[in-house]
Amino acid sequence: MIRYTRLLLFLLLVGFVATANAQRKRPSNPLKDFLNTQWWLGLKFGTNLSQADPTQRYSAISPINFDAETLDKSYDDYSLIGAHAGIDITFYHRGFSIGIQPNFRRQRFSYQNTFTWAGATATESFETTYEIEQRMDLLELPFYVKYDITRGKARPYVMAGVYYAIVSGADKKADFSQTDFQPGSPQIIDAGVVSVGVKDAFNKSTSGFLAGLGVSYDALNIRTVLELAYRQSFGEMIKPEYRFTETELAGIGDTYDDFKLKNISLSISFLFPLRYISSQFQPY
């Protein structure tokens, strides 16, 4: 994980050095050179989908006479929509951009687990299922490098970077249902919903990498950017010391797996240039 971070930082360093060296060349055309460098500032917001990718399974239940793998949770893939909004600060030079995008993110994912008990006959059987919806609020600081594939009003680009995020809130909602296979037709029981705050279970901060592609379009002195990005945390999200502590949901056997958080974000940004030659000059 640290190796990945160092590699990304190295790549960023190479990008900076290359850009810095390019700056030292004497400009042959002041107007053209002016157009090759720009600061952009604007707003960014969008929606996202998350998935927890378990790396180590845990359960508050320890089995006496059955296979522990039956206790594994079943995770949904990118099923719950989240949202994010923030500020986009970008420095552009000769096709390369670097930037930071401090933003607030709400990310959600879900999983289920089912337990069964059985006797000698089919009617001596009972099943309980809980569906968990996990919500996390993150204050994220991404740091990225972009490369514009073409130069024009519409500019497709690719980007990569790293992020650091503070977990500002987390809660989970458990929805219980039970099936009693009594004589006759099985009885399905709505066993209620429980919501609990779980911020303490999460590490205070997390980091990861991001990569994506997008397209920007310049019109009316506004750069509109549509971006699709993938994020993945480097490390685990959960504090080990909180995994099996007594919580509201420990009594049903629920506890967190070790997992890496994956996320796909679709964003739109509206950016404004910060350098002008005159009030009539349009930079692009």
């Binding site: 320890s62 006496i64 008990w117 059985a118 480097f234 010391e241 099996f244 007594e246 919580t247 009594g251």
Partner: peptide, 23 residues
Amino acid sequence: FMACTEEESSNLSFTRIFDDLDF
């Protein structure tokens, strides 16, 4: 680096339920 190298504390507390499949 801070986010990557956060050390894991030893896990001493637990609540475990010993389940039996028998109805």
